[in-house]
């Protein structure tokens, strides 16, 4: 048993605990047999201190007053077992009633004992319920604190998530920008390697025709676009030629068929290796084309 509880036991034995403090101690004592035993011992010790004083007999009239008081108190209480001697003759006359009262008193006494036990049980239950309530309140406070901590952590994580999302969006934007820059650079590089030639004619019939050749020397291929080309004999075809200074004869790049409006757009690839496309020429050849230029050159690049 701790000192604090012993302090209270000593104060209780001396009658020094008051009000709520005294009731709280009695609750604690009700469920602690050791504490009950200690209080009983200290109460006996305290009471025996009265014996150390020099006894003083109270005035004789005081006893008469006390005895008179108890007789009157019994008289006022309606005539129970504690009747004054002067009234005993009446009691004798009503012996049966007295016996009944005695039985009732015994029953009441037993009933009182039972109620006292029940009150003690209820009191214990109340003390336990209070303890449980305090325990629950403490747990609730702990849970609330944990909840608050988790909310703080969630808020911090959300902030970090938002920041990461912003950084990711920023990075994507930069990547897209870089990709655009790379595409632009590639396109510029591609165009730089392209050779564009416009073919012209000295023949009146073909002067209104427009012919443009885009030549990719790396890929060794090109695109020919014709517009407003005059119709030719159905037995003939236009044929494109690539003039290579290192090659004694122009290299055929295939025949070209134009539509009714004189329009055509074809991809072409020379039949032989071309080291350098110095010029492009368009001739009119027999249907299906020829290996070497045989017909008239109608358009040629400068």
């Amino acid at each position: 048993m701790n000192d604090s509880l012993q302090d209270k036991a000593a104060l209780y034995a001396l009658g020094l605990l008051e009000g709520e403090e005294s009731r709280a101690f009695e609750l604690a004592m009700a469920k602690d047999p050791d504490l009950q035993a200690l209080v009983a011992e200290l109460s006996d010790t305290t009471a025996e201190l009265a014996l150390t004083l020099k006894p003083i007999a109270p005035p004789a009239h005081l006893k008469a007053k006390v005895m008179d008081s108890i007789i009157r108190s019994d008289s006022h209480s309606g005539g129970n077992a504690r009747m004054a001697p002067a009234r005993r003759s009446w009691a004798m006359a009503g012996w049966g009633i007295a016996a009944a009262v005695t039985v009732s008193s015994v029953w009441l006494f037993q009933e009182r004992q039972r109620l006292t036990r029940e009150i003690a049980i209820v009191t214990n239950g109340e003390a336990e319920a209070r303890a449980e309530l305090l325990d629950t309140a403490a747990k609730l406070a702990s849970i609330q604190q944990s909840e608050a901590t988790l909310k703080q952590q969630i808020a911090a994580a959300t902030q970090r998530d938002d920041k990461l999302n912003r950084e990711l969006a920023d990075a994507k934007s930069k990547a897209a920008q870089l990709a655009g820059e790379i595409a632009s650079l590639l396109k510029r590089n591609y165009l730089a390697e392209m050779q564009i030639s416009t073919l012209q004619s000295t023949v009146d019939e073909f002067k209104q025709g427009v012919a443009v050749v885009v030549w990719d020397s790396d890929k060794h291929e090109g695109v020919l676009k014709l517009e407003k080309m005059p119709p030719i004999d159905p037995q003939n075809d236009y044929q494109l030629w690539v003039v290579d200074p290192k090659n004694p004869a122009p290299v055929s790049a295939g025949v070209v068929s134009v539509d009714a409006q004189g329009f055509a757009k074809v991809d072409f690839k020379p039949v032989d290796i071309v080291s350098e496309a110095a010029k492009f020429a368009l001739s009119v050849e027999q249907k299906g084309g020829v290996d070497k230029v045989a017909g008239p050159i109608v358009l040629i690049s400068p």
Binding site: P55, I56, K63, V66, I70, A81
Partner: peptide, 25 residues
């Protein structure tokens, strides 16, 4: 407790001197 006044009177005789001394003190 059972209503015996003579017993109560005897108890008074035993207890009253130390208790009266205590009350006076």
């Amino acid at each position: 407790a059972g209503g015996d006044q003579s017993a109560f009177s005897a108890l008074y005789d035993r207890f009253s001197p130390p208790l009266f001394a205590l009350m006076r003190q």
